[in-house]
Design a protein around this nucleic acid. Structure first.
Lengths: 198, 198, 198, 198
DNA sequence: GATGAATGAGGGTTCATTCAT
DNA sequence: TATGAATGAACCCTCATTCAT
């Protein structure tokens, strides 16, 4: 999917610049000036492509989400068993290039705006719904129906909680520790094979 | 611990007002003017009692933390067994008066500032350390030593993840659902009794 | 007078679009972008045909003036007596398609710029001079020479005053009321026939 | 009526500064910076006393109107006969300190904003209503009832038309010429004495 | 001829902070 | 102690204008 028009190229550049500035400065510190500078452009051009700051960061959030989604999808396509699909979702969410303090921090900044920016809220909800749907489609082969919901929510909450901790950089959390946490949970809560139906 | 001096009363009022405004408006929208208004005071007085905005919200965070801590401590004192202490920590963190969207949102706003405000980071780290220590002191009676760390981190991550979700208000999460999640985790991961030492 | 060259057609479109936007948005709100949009063209093209914004609105004013002049001229050509010529001038100025709130408002916006835009001032002066000349050439047959100036100025002031009121849309002024005003004035101030020369 | 609080003094200064800048620069050119400068203050203070630019100029318009009203009222109080009251209204509107090109220009700028600023429109309507009421209360003693409305509107239209012309500074209109116009109108349209009731 | 990318200046507005009273 | 006047910096955003294609 090539971006033919220059406008789409610029828009992508600016979305990415916005997300990068977000990592460094948080939402309050992420001024249009800094985003423009980061993209090597003038301040005016930013609002030439995005109606306002809010729209810019909305697209930045969407872009970051797409990257995350693609990482998960790529792994899902290689997964053969339901359990492997669970692992795919989890490992996609902890890929090295995403699971970094600065990126977690950027997400945190976006999430903090959700209650006052309905657009961001909508994106957030889409992200959660997708994660849940991915988990459910795997879990329903591994657990009795009435447990799937609870376990799915636990997994997403664990992931979010670990991301939050990385964003806060407390306790020197590393990617390996996070993955160990997830594995420990799966091991104790989700059987590797579907229950034999008598 | 009575607040004898009038100045201490004012400070407390302002700390609380700050936290309330944070719930309503997030960090960016929490101006000194609004905090003053919320406390029924003039704008000037806020910086009479706190050196600057940052210091005010630092104290607001500390104050909110104290309330949470006291809720946990009160429950801990009633707990008799290690497992009950685990439950005390968890239930304290999900007490009805704290586990509300607006309050989760306020915490989220504060957390989003942590990477750029060392003082907030310090408070955050204290909170995490206390939670972990509380959990560890209970877990070490219930689990082999090498599993305690992992489980403690899982519990805190779960709690944080559920708070985050409440702050984002996605999926209509309720207090009951959150507690059910926690119980499900404990049930599958932590035995109610200490392992018999052979 | 056909507009042969395509460029002249475009210029005319843009002049008219400019005047229409002026009616809707006033001078401050009349951006080049909106004018272009209104003409179904791109923003760049506007300054391709007009050196700058000022020149565009100068031409818009001229164009609107031409339309008004033609309305008056058409009526003047049908008038046979001096008094009928007076009426022609007046009725031309209150023709239904011109005497509308939005158009009066556009003129008002242009007039407000006159003190700072010499070009607009020049056009304004031409308009006034023509009106005065039209009135004088009729009045000199109906009134003693020394009264003509005063009456001509009264008539133009009345017309302008009524336009202004329509632009402000206060008092629900209608075309009929305005014409009644003018007729009342003429009736009491200007005899229908030339004074008999003894 | 002394302005006790410093805030009221500042507000008055700023209102007047705003009106003065309006005279020099028109509405578009009347930036808050210039108003502040003109009042010898900082830009920030302007919005400390007025919520926004619109509110500032609304108050400026009101202030200018009050001055005009007081001039008329002062003359009205000295008038003994209905005809003198007519003259009072007219002469008040052409007082030397008001009937100046720059002031007419300022009013013109305000009027041009009326269609897009309901607040200004409201003030404008009050001004018109007062003028009309003043005229009517005098005219009803001098003219048959059915003519009063028309004459009152003619007078206000004449006044406005003459002000407009002064604002545009076309034809070298002077105060004396304007007054001569008004006198000429009255002379031919309004009898100096009440009609004798048979 | 026509488009729209790009710039940069400037405006309104918000706010933390300082100060005089 | 308490108020609110005053400042100045910074931000978002708008727009006329220029240019490359």
């Amino acid at each position: 999917m090539k971006l033919t028009k220059i406008s789409e190229i610029r828009r992508k550049e600016l979305r990415q610049a916005a997300f990068e500035v977000l990592q460094l400065e948080g939402m309050a510190g992420a001024t249009l000036e800094k985003v423009a500078q980061h993209a090597g452009a003038s301040k005016g051009i930013v609002l030439h492509y995005f109606r306002n700051k809010q729209e810019l960061f909305e697209h930045a959030m969407r872009e970051a989400n797409v990257a995350l989604r693609e990482a998960v999808v790529a792994r899902l396509m290689l997964a053969k068993t339901p359990y492997e699909r669970l692992e795919a979702v989890i490992e996609g969410n902890f890929e090295e290039r995403f699971f970094r303090p600065s990126i977690c921090h950027a997400w945190l900044s976006l999430c903090a705006e959700v209650p006052r920016e309905p657009q961001l809220g909508r994106i957030q909800r889409v992200i959660h719904a997708r994660m849940r749907s991915n988990l459910m489609s795997a879990l329903k082969h591994l657990l009795p129906e009435n447990e799937c919901q609870v376990v799915a929510l636990s997994i997403t909450a664990l992931i979010d909680g670990l991301w939050l901790r990385l964003g806060l950089q407390s306790e020197g959390l590393t990617r390996e520790m996070a993955l160990a946490e997830m594995r420990d949970y799966l091991q104790h809560r989700v059987p590797k094979m579907a229950p034999s139906n008598p």
